[in-house]
């Protein structure tokens, strides 16, 4: 098993372990409006024109907003095999994300401000922070950064 350099504490919301590259957003996401459940693509982020791929990533974002149906969007992503492997909320774990992950068995954690700061410090040295691989272990409530 590969060793990770830094371990950061988190709070378990949905149990599980997931390893993947980080997909980091600084602003909230509306799953229903922004996500294509067939492809796992996400668009309309922070007024950017780029499309991002959720599949196999560890999604790190503040919280979800907007439609209550977003919970089904998370479930559809999982059913279509294009979901993130794990999700970390950095502002609050909203009801949509919590319920969507609960029925999809997607590991979900919350990190507080202090640990989020450590997390950002750990990944900001890298040229492209979205290429960094992390291990999310919600059972042990630890995020390991490569």
């Amino acid at each position: 098993m590969r060793e990770f350099d830094l371990k950061i504490g988190c709070k378990k919301i949905v149990n599980g372990k997931a390893r993947g590259k980080v997909l980091l957003f600084q602003k909230p996401l509306n799953f229903l409006g922004m996500v294509n459940t067939n492809t796992g693509e996400i668009t309309n982020i922070e007024d950017r024109t780029e499309t991002y791929q959720l599949r196999n990533r560890i999604l790190v974002f503040p919280n979800s907003i907007g439609s209550s149906v977003g919970a089904y969007t998370i479930f559809s992503l999982k059913s279509n095999n294009v979901s993130p492997r794990g999700i970390i909320c950095t502002n609050k774990v909203d009801i949509t994300t919590a319920s969507g992950c609960a029925i999809s068995n997607i590991p979900l954690a919350f990190i507080n401000k202090e640990n989020y700061r450590k997390f950002i410090e750990a990944i900001e040295d890298h040229f492209n922070s979205n290429e960094i691989e992390i291990l999310l272990d919600t059972e042990r409530e630890i995020i390991s950064v490569d």
Partner: peptide, 14 residues
């Protein structure tokens, strides 16, 4: 059981 699983996750989250 599924309904309680959802509520427990939300309970932990909030």
């Amino acid at each position: 059981a599924a309904a309680y699983r959802i509520l427990v996750a939300i309970g932990e989250a909030t």
